[in-house]
């Protein structure tokens, strides 16, 4: 008997009995067993094999259970660790165990991206979960987004470094001389985050999302209406700073816009021309907006 076989046997013995109860739904032993098999096959296809270390940074969700037992089925070694960990802590564990893959929440990807260059063994970031949270505040937050063809950049690394450079230059133009940027990370001043960004992808497009703090951000109101899982809250209360705090004054909207957009034009070698949505885009926009509000 081993942990891989354990579930197989339970599934044979009482297939219909509930094994996991999650958000009002029951997952039977049979289903659990099949899901574990699916993930084991999926990991195997990626080249994960016996003895390989697979890190698991997940809260108590069905995906944690699938991941842990898929490892057992493969004879791989599961390395579960604290979802509250930050950069250096994650780095130490992933480095020490030489994990080939890490299974985590979508929302933890920026944390791992920031340390990825120091993890030559880490081949795969496998993600799950729908636990992202964005707080928008009329005074404090500025969002810069992009829908860009992947062909604009050589690769994702270049995409991150060019947008990072552009943001650094834009903020420096405003007088923030101390701002710095690390690989795929956030823009920081004395360790505090002033802006952050990440890329998503869909087909041959990158979707860019930048958030920049103009004035001090106060999350109190937001936390009073949202039950924030520890791993997310920890990220949200990451020490922040803002343009106003750093400069002692708040430049006008026009000054901020001009500084950031002109830096973007320079670093991306393009000209930005203000335009509007096409008719088709407008239809899509109304649809997406309605869906986002209805759910």
């Amino acid at each position: 008997m081993n942990l891989g076989r354990l579930l197989e046997e339970r599934a044979k013995k009482h297939p219909k009995r509930a094994a996991l109860l999650y958000e009002g739904k029951a997952i039977s032993f049979e289903e659990l067993n099949k899901n574990v098999n699916r993930l084991a096959n999926g990991l195997k296809d990626l080249g994960i094999s016996r003895g390989d270390r697979v890190a698991i940074m997940l809260p108590n969700t069905p995906e944690f259970v699938y991941s842990f037992f898929a490892c057992q089925r493969l004879g791989a070694v599961a390395v579960p660790f604290n979802t509250m960990y930050k950069g250096g802590e994650i780095l130490y564990i992933l480095k020490d165990c030489g994990a080939k893959a890490v299974i985590t929440l979508n929302s933890a990807v920026p944390l791992i991206n920031e340390i990825r260059p120091e993890l030559p063994h880490l081949q795969y970031i496998i993600t799950t979960g729908e636990r992202n949270i964005t707080f928008a505040d009329p005074d404090s937050t500025l969002f810069l987004q992009g829908v860009l063809s992947k062909a604009v950049f050589r690769d994702l690394d270049e995409a991150y470094s060019r947008i990072g450079d552009a943001m650094v230059q834009g903020l420096r133009k405003l007088g923030l001389k101390e701002v710095w940027y690390k690989h795929r990370g956030s823009l920081r001043i004395r360790g505090r985050k002033i802006a952050g960004f990440y890329f998503s992808e869909i087909e041959d497009l990158y979707i860019l999302n930048v958030i920049c703090f103009l004035t001090p951000f106060d999350p109190t109101d937001f936390f009073s209406v949202i039950w924030v899982p520890p791993e997310v809250k920890d990220k949200v209360i990451e020490p922040l700073t803002s343009i106003q705090e750093e400069l002692g004054k708040r430049p006008t909207d026009e000054e901020i816009k001009r500084a950031i957009l002109s830096a973007l034009e320079e670093k991306l070698g393009t000209k930005l021309k203000e335009g509007a949505l096409t008719r088709d885009e407008k239809l899509g926009y109304e649809k997406h907006k309605a869906l986002a509000k209805r759910r």
Binding site: G4, E8, R38, I103, I126
Partner: peptide
């Protein structure tokens, strides 16, 4: 859209077979 250069766990499972014989650890 999903985080760039990551693999979706759900997709990994969706494409895979639901039979697997355990390693004899």
């Amino acid at each position: 859209a999903r985080p760039a250069e990551t693999i979706s766990l759900q997709e990994l499972m969706l494409k895979a077979k639901d039979k697997f014989s355990s390693a004899d650890s």
